[in-house]
Design a protein around this nucleic acid. Structure first.
Length: 304
DNA sequence: GCCCTATGTTAAA
DNA sequence: TTAACCTAGGGCT
């Protein structure tokens, strides 16, 4: 799945291309037909990401909540105002960059006939957006949307102008340090920190020199805050670049293969290869049905 | 074509 | 802990 940075890019994209406009909302596939009818023709008035969830607010007060899950993605098309990403969501190739596909702006003749399973289609006078394969796509009242957000922890990418108070770094430190659960599990817990996924988990723990099997309560407040700041910085980079690059420039320069994506990560999907810092072979194990990558030299020997 | 994999979450067992 | 959700690409045959 797209981690939080992708959903924040989506929120920005929706505001850029659809903000303030009336949208025709349909469900070509049919599974979202009743929800689509509730917002069809309404004006898009807000677009905000919280962790991995997207909340689109409409002029009639209703909120469209989308969670892309493991496979979901949005495809965009339209006239020249649709600069920006052509597709944002689940990566279709290793290390795929979410970016404008380079096609020259063309006269907009309306959206193409939907192909395959399009759960939701949003159409303005300038372009369209198709949603495929989401885990969640539903229309909520404001109270229902707030109830969903209340279950999420603070988001390192929370927009400065957001009206939603998520507690920020202090709340993250509290939630992390009161648990006896291991860090590897806590970072994937969206009620502890919203938006972190499997790549940022592995890379942040490496960058901070933290043992994935250390417990939340074992961290000092300074260590926990450093972890937050590191996530905030690398995830903000992800928003800017449309891809996850966590290696520091100094650790990329001497790579034998200087071309991204071969040097984008320290440990993620680098099992068996030498650690960029200490040359110990990177290790991998399975934890709660997800792969966990770490360097036994820099971060500790492993499960215990 | 077939099988595996993937930046995720939820519900049932 | 496991299955289900449900999409597309890559490697293989």
């Amino acid at each position: 799945m797209p981690e939080g940075h992708s959903v924040h890019r989506l929120a920005r994209q929706f505001a850029d291309v659809f903000g303030g406009q009336e949208l025709a909302v349909t469900s070509p596939q049919g599974r979202f037909a009743s929800g689509a009818a509730r917002i069809d023709g309404a004006r898009l008035v807000s677009s905000e990401a919280h962790g991995k969830q997207l909340f689109l607010g409409f002029g009639n007060g209703l909120v469209l909540r989308v969670h892309l899950g493991l496979y979901g993605a949005w495809d965009f098309g339209g006239d020249g105002t649709f600069r920006g990403a052509s597709s944002i969501g689940a990566p279709r190739r290793i290390g795929e960059r979410e970016a404008y596909d380079g096609a020259a702006p063309a006269p907009y003749g309306g959206p193409p006939a939907p192909t395959g399973q399009v759960r939701a289609r949003l159409v303005s006078g300038h372009g369209w957006a198709d949603l495929r394969g989401p885990t969640a796509c539903e229309v909520l009242t404001p109270a229902e949307a707030s109830a969903v957000r209340a279950k999420l922890g603070p988001d390192p990418l929370r927009p400065a102008g957001s009206a939603w108070e998520d507690g920020g770094p202090e709340e993250f430190v509290r939630r992390l340090r009161r648990r006896s659960v291991i860090l590897a599990t806590l970072l994937m817990d969206q009620s502890v920190v919203a938006g972190v996924g499997n790549i940022y988990r592995a890379e942040a723990l490496f960058r901070q020199g933290l043992d994935p099997w250390a417990r939340g309560r074992d961290l000092g407040p300074g260590q926990a805050l450093d972890l937050w700041e590191d996530l905030a910085a690398t995830m903000a980079d992800g928003v800017r670049q449309g891809r996850i690059i966590t290696t520091r420039a100094a650790d990329r320069a001497d790579s034998a293969v200087p071309l991204w994506p071969d040097n984008a990560h320290y440990v993620y999907q680098r099992q068996g290869r030498p650690c960029r810092v200490c040359a110990t072979p990177v290790a991998v194990t399975e934890l709660a049905a997800r792969k966990l990558y770490w360097c036994p030299g820099c971060q500790g020997a492993g499960p215990r």
